[in-house]
Design a binder for these strands. Sequence first.
DNA 1: ATGAATGATTTTCT
DNA 2: AGAAAATCATTCAT
Length: 457
Amino acid sequence: MEDQTHLMQTLGGVTLAGHPLSLPAPHDGKQQDIGDILQQIMTITDQSLDEAQAKKHGLNCHRMKPALFSVLCEIKEKTGLSMRSSQDEEPTDPQLMRLDNMLLAEGVSGPEKGSGAAAVAAATAAVGVGADNSIEHSDYRAKLSQIRQIYHTELEKYEQACNEFTTHVMNLLREQSRTRPISPKEIERMVNIIHRKFSSIQMQLKQSTCEAVMILRSRFLDARRKRRNFSKQATEILNEYFYSHLSNPYPSEEAKEELAKKCAITVSQGKGSTITVSQVSNWFGNKRIRYKKNIGKFQEEANLYAAKTAVTAAQAVAAAVQNSQNNSPATPSSGFQMKDEEFQLDAAEDKNNLLNNMFTGTSGSHSLPGSGDLFMSMSSLNGSYQSNQVTGAGQTQGDSIRHAIGQSLGYSDGLRGNPLYSPHGLNGNGVWHDAVTPSSVTSPIEGTNSIHSDTSN
DNA sequence: ATGAATGATTTTCT
DNA sequence: AGAAAATCATTCAT
């Protein structure tokens, strides 16, 4: 009696009550029986293989075996649980979540091509890249899908290896469970451990995949690394706008759009890239700051473009005249696009310089239409700025016209006195005049074509 | 190889 | 938000 209870206590307080094969009520004979069994178990390692095999078989067939096995399993369970329960539940690693999310966002994990392409498109759109570099896109996509493929095959490999290993271990344990006290729960726990190990390996895979994607992204999607200079024509267009709006070189959103479109058109035949609105914004941002920083450096350029616009304006006027001469004379109330600020000479420092430069060099080489060709009629130049021009800004539309007339008719005169070539968009504070904001891209070079682009109504 | 030019991005300012 | 300023990274001419 005492022995029995003592044994039970040393076994960790496991009771066999309710067990289908619970120990029979203790009395002397049975006590002896259990003692024998335990003795045999303890000494089994000291025996020879054959002997042990025989003993083992004997034990296996012993009627107490299942009961004792259960007892041992329960004991292990208890001790094991107390040791492992702390680390049992995985706290769903936040880093793993992050990696998963990122891979999903990059289109590496998740469904095939469809979402992958979408993710790429989204990513590129987020960076603000236009339809421009389709070559690079396909290149990028190819590399990305390469990564994706590697990732998936690796993942599959791990999965497979994990499963194989798990079943192997399970079989092994099941096998062992015939001779060792191994409960199904313990097997399950072992499987969990294996899975954890493998998923940590998977995490490493995910990590390195993420790194690869990041590198790929920075290589391909960082526009800085793929900078292409704008085509000559595009810069020409932008410069034209800039210098013809020198007093207020802040194109509106629509103007930017139109500029971008224009650049795209002129560039389409070449290998140049199309230009987006944000690129136009960049260009003007850069241009403004760089111009302001060193006006002298840009003087020549300014002269050149100013002369250009003057010439083309004159030509446009001439063309318009020819048209209008057939028609009835138009109301000369339109805003010719040169604004007052562009004509007004501030008491600025470069005035002389400017005048010196005026017709030496670039401008002089222009073959200018004779003044005889230049008549004036504003009919077809109407409307560009009309809606947006703030006459209160010190300019009347009549002034504009007057300038245009002067330019058209008396060429040298108009140019000599024409501050169009002046860099005086800036006030004393280095800030651009807050002048009227023309919303149209229309420039003299356009002639009469784009007059209607304005949405003044 | 080197530096200026230039487009894009980031930071700061309003 | 959008512009200025500073900065970065590339392209291009030398």
